[in-house]
Design a protein around this nucleic acid. Structure first.
Length: 577
DNA sequence: TAGCTCGGAA
DNA sequence: CACAGTCCGAGCTA
């Protein structure tokens, strides 16, 4: 009855998964459905089961029985009864409250109780944090003004009660649009099966009878870098045939969306607007940045550009890179819950812990393809990850020991012995396109000097960047050293080797982004390599583990190599690699 | 009015 | 946890 027994389920809702266990792979895939990875030290992965991870599982069609059965099957010992009963409790809450329309009361909505828990509505009715929403008891429902739709869902989720929103959406102004099936340069293209499945998950469940309450219509789709998230957005646009607002993280991305819409849909460029610092076009399809929305006037601190949400009758809002969505945009989003919302991201993790607000205001996770799955099907390159632990020179180690907590990190990050390793790695992968990525300008300048490679930082003029990117694409340059610009530059060329020499504290998101730089499938089908250089026995090593979490959760494995043990013989090693 | 440089913001 | 980078808008020049 104990099944594979690869896991130990603890009373505090953590699950330890033993790395060497024969059932490891299977267990990992199962756990990914309802738990999140929080630590991955040497022997065990530590997962945590949270209300949010269970609600997302429920939204994805898992039942409490499914989860309980999986956990029993994976667990080495009897699963604590409290854990099982709490899982049932949390999962039963998903679906026990729904928002629906009222029949004859304009501007009002019902919060309806779907499962028997007689005290629940009483509890909500008297809950202080819900007091301002003017809840009125009406049998098994609470009636309240529709303007509180978003805030109520947000607050209820905080209280531990997710609300399924079936109050429906307004259609928005109609916009006839079709995918053209060819790109601008005449290359044919069609939706890949997983892209199609993603759109189905978002729009397929929309009730076609307008005015009727329907499921779906808002939520998040998670696809790896380079898997074609934009296409999924365009396909959603085609399904819904309505005017659409697209929000994204920077102007380069704004322009890329516009280019793709022009190439791949029947819309003309006059129908597509850019709303940025440069231009303030508001057109049937408008693409804008989060940054301009959060910009406040000098005089009274008004969010003047938030008006964009109401300037046209949008039927759909696409939140690109939804993991970056800033707090003021959450607030504005709470007020437009009758508009369909599609969140797109490669990493639905936030370092500020606002995942729950994404869940309540954008919607649940509707669809996800694990990164390794796309690797298997050849849509992204196979990658080998290595963490190389580089010893500090004795003098540096001394300095490190003497330093304060936060200085320690920087000293370890800038360990100059990393440069020597860089040279060896470059020799090993000679002839391939290599990106060296780091956090500190001085360190990067040193690396660029030693490698005799060009350096791109924030202060590199735009034309110079374009020129270098072009030369790199054409293989006139093999090695490019880049700073944090690599995190934002949408136009950074692909490479097949990336070496990270330093990074910001524990950013899982940044690590994923950097790995994303080498994911485009290689023509020859060869592997890509991702190296992370870390000072051995330092705080940096600790943060490196945290950085890797998301990718480990996605199924990537980091081979750990200690300083001395590697490259004693480069030739022999290259066969291993 | 287009094309800059600069400081502030998050 | 702070460094680096981005974007916006204002103020300037031509």
């Amino acid at each position: 009855m104990n099944g594979t027994g690869a896991c130990i389920v603890q009373r505090d809702f953590t699950v330890l998964l033993e790395k060497g266990h024969p059932g490891f792979e299977q267990a990992k895939n199962k756990l990914a459905l309802f738990a999140e990875l929080v630590k991955s030290p040497a022997m065990f992965h530590t997962y945590r089961i949270t209300p949010l991870s269970l609600w997302n599982a429920a939204a994805g069609g898992q039942t409490a029985d499914d989860v309980v059965e999986m956990l029993r099957c994976l667990s080495r010992w009897e699963v604590p009864g409290k854990v099982l009963s709490d899982i049932r409790m949390w999962m039963s809450r998903y679906g026990s409250l729904a928002l629906i329309r009222t029949d004859g009361a304009p501007g009002m909505l019902y919060l309806e109780q779907r499962r028997s828990n007689p005290a629940l509505l009483d509890q909500l009715e008297t809950e202080p944090s819900l007091a301002s929403f003017r809840l009125q008891r009406d049998g098994f429902r609470l009636c309240f003004p529709a303007v509180f739709r978003g805030q109520l869902k947000q607050e209820a989720a905080r209280l531990g009660y997710p609300v399924i929103d079936e109050a429906g959406y307004h259609r928005g102004h109609t916009l006839p649009v079709a995918l053209r099936g060819v790109t601008g340069d005449g290359q044919p293209f069609a939706l890949r099966d997983y892209q199609e499945a993603g759109v189905d998950a978002f729009a397929g469940r929309v009730n076609p009878a307008e005015g009727q309450a329907g499921h779906g219509g808002s939520g998040v789709i998670v696809l790896p870098c380079g898997a074609g998230k934009t296409i999924v957005g365009l396909a959603a646009l085609e399904r819904l045939q309505c005017e659409t607002l697209i929000l994204t993280s920077n102007v380069t991305s704004v322009r890329q969306w516009i280019t793709e819409i022009c190439q791949k849909t029947t819309l003309t460029s006059e129908q597509i607007g850019e709303y940025s610092g440069d231009k303030k076009q508001v057109r049937p399809v408008t693409v804008s940045t989060y940054q301009i929305l959060t910009h406040r006037t000098k005089k009274d601190g008004d969010f003047q550009h938030m008006r964009l949400f109401n300037e046209r009758d949008w039927g759909l809002i696409i939140y690109d890179e939804v993991h970056l969505l800033p707090a003021p945009v959450f607030r504005a989003t709470a007020d437009i819950q009758a508009t369909r919302r599609l969140g797109l991201t490669a990493t639905l993790v936030r370092e500020d812990g606002c995942e729950r607000d994404v869940f309540s205001l954008i919607g649940p996770k509707l669809y996800e393809v694990p990164w390794r799955e796309l690797e298997r099907t050849g849509h992204i390159a196979k990658v080998e990850c290595q963490e190389i632990q580089v010893a500090m020179a004795p003098s540096l180690k001394e300095k490190y020991e003497a330093a304060q907590g936060r200085e320690k990190f920087r000293i370890a990050s800038e360990n100059s012995r990393k440069t020597a390793w860089l040279e060896r790695l470059l020799r090993l992968h000679e002839g391939r396109q290599i990106l060296v990525i780091g956090q500190y300008l001085q360190q990067l300048a040193e690396a660029a000097y030693v490698l005799q490679a060009p350096l791109i930082t924030g202060s590199t003029p735009q034309e110079e960047r374009v020129r270098l990117f072009q030369a790199f694409r054409e293989r006139q340059i093999q090695v490019l050293v880049v700073s944090k610009v690599a995190n934002f530059a949408v136009d950074l060329p692909d490479a097949s080797v990336a070496v990270q020499i330093s990074g910001s504290f524990g950013s899982r998101q940044e690590e994923a982004q950097r790995l994303g730089r080498i994911l485009r499938p290689k023509a020859t089908g060869e592997k890509a390599y991702f190296y992370s250089l870390v000072s051995a026995d330092s705080r940096e090593q600790h943060f490196a583990l945290r950085r890797q979490l998301f990718l480990v959760e996605q199924g990537y494995e980091y081979k750990i190599r200690r300083d001395e043990a590697i490259f004693q013989d480069d030739a022999a090693q290259s066969e291993v690699l």
